[in-house]
Simulated assay, not measured.
Amino acid sequence: MNARLNARLDGAQPSTDYAALRRNREYAGLNRVLLDLVPAGSGPAVLDVGCGDGAVSEQLLQRDPTMALTGVDPDPELLGAARARLGDRARFAEGDASSVARLFPAGSFDTVVLANCIHLVPDLAGAFAAIGQVLTAGGRLVFNSAFYAGAETPADLPLYAELVGTARRTATARGLSLARSAGGRPAGLRRTADDYRAALEVAGYAGAVAAERTFTLGPRFLAALCSTPMFASAALPGIGRHQAAELLTETLTQLYERTPFTISRRCVYFTATRP
């Protein structure tokens, strides 16, 4: 790995989870736009769904220390990290978007936030219905995603194809067996911005507003993306996630050494209100 790429990928080693992506500064920039959509108020009750290790929860509290913040995530290990990060500044519960109506009384929150995790929600209708139950009347749902149909710009699609294709050929040459991918892209990645808008309408939300922004991202973002289970498992099915992430990052290094690049990626942001 040359010094130029080494500097750009510093700290972006394969981790087979979402830690590298959460730490990525460019990815954080995508989420900062979302945080600007969270209403400020006098001690608002805010639910951070898919809070992970509490990184976005911490940013929410930094913006408004008066809020009563609750984080929800299905991963007990990540919740432990969130509790260690925030202590008694927030409370946490184990669950997912579809379970929040069982975890909290109706009308408990003024705002519900899903920071770049909506594409991981399998039952979108159930999630929106459950979230609607725990929002106050007039409460706001805020979410974003940089992983949806249309997020990749057409000019960058050949780079993704070359990255995955080269990594697969390398895996085969090293005697690793790739599984046949039956489902193609995960369902969440096949959703469009219009799919989210339609699901909000069906769930009874009002005033849905969507905005798309395009970000220029470097190889560190792509290296962090390669380490996620979502990307590694889809790109190299049948290979352990850690090994798949290593192969993808190795291939990314080779591609960058040959031709330095940046990518453009769209992120969609939604706000909607419970009537």
Rank of each mutant, 00 (worst) to 15 (best):
A3S: 15
R4T: 13
R4Y: 04
L5S: 11
R8Y: 07
A12L: 12
A12Y: 10
R22Q: 05
R32Y: 04
D36L: 02
D36F: 05
V38W: 00
V38M: 00
A40I: 00
A40P: 00
G41Y: 00
S42G: 07
G43D: 04
A45L: 00
A45Q: 06
V46L: 07
L47T: 01
V49D: 14
C51T: 14
L61V: 05
Q62G: 14
R63G: 12
M67K: 14
L69Y: 08
T70H: 13
P74F: 03
D75V: 00
D75G: 01
A82T: 15
R85T: 07
D88S: 14
F92C: 09
S98N: 05
V100R: 14
V100T: 14
V100L: 12
L103S: 05
F104R: 12
F104Q: 11
F104Y: 13
P105V: 07
G107D: 03
S108L: 00
T111E: 06
V112N: 08
V112T: 08
A115C: 14
C117Y: 04
P122G: 06
G126I: 07
A129S: 15
A130Y: 09
I131N: 08
I131D: 10
I131C: 10
G132A: 05
Q133P: 03
T136S: 14
A137W: 00
G139L: 08
G139N: 11
R140P: 05
V142M: 11
S145T: 15
S145K: 04
A146Y: 02
F147N: 00
G150T: 01
P154I: 09
A155C: 04
L159P: 07
A161H: 12
A161D: 15
E162N: 10
T172C: 03
A182S: 13
G183N: 11
G183A: 13
E201K: 11
E201P: 08
A206L: 06
T214N: 06
L217E: 04
G218H: 13
F221N: 00
A223N: 02
A223C: 08
A223K: 02
A224D: 05
A224R: 05
L225N: 05
L225G: 01
P229M: 13
A234C: 02
P237M: 07
I239K: 06
I239H: 03
G240R: 10
A244T: 03
A244L: 01
A244H: 00
A245W: 07
L252K: 13
L252D: 04
T253Y: 00
I263P: 06
I263D: 03
R266T: 02
V268K: 10
Y269M: 11
T273C: 00
R274E: 09
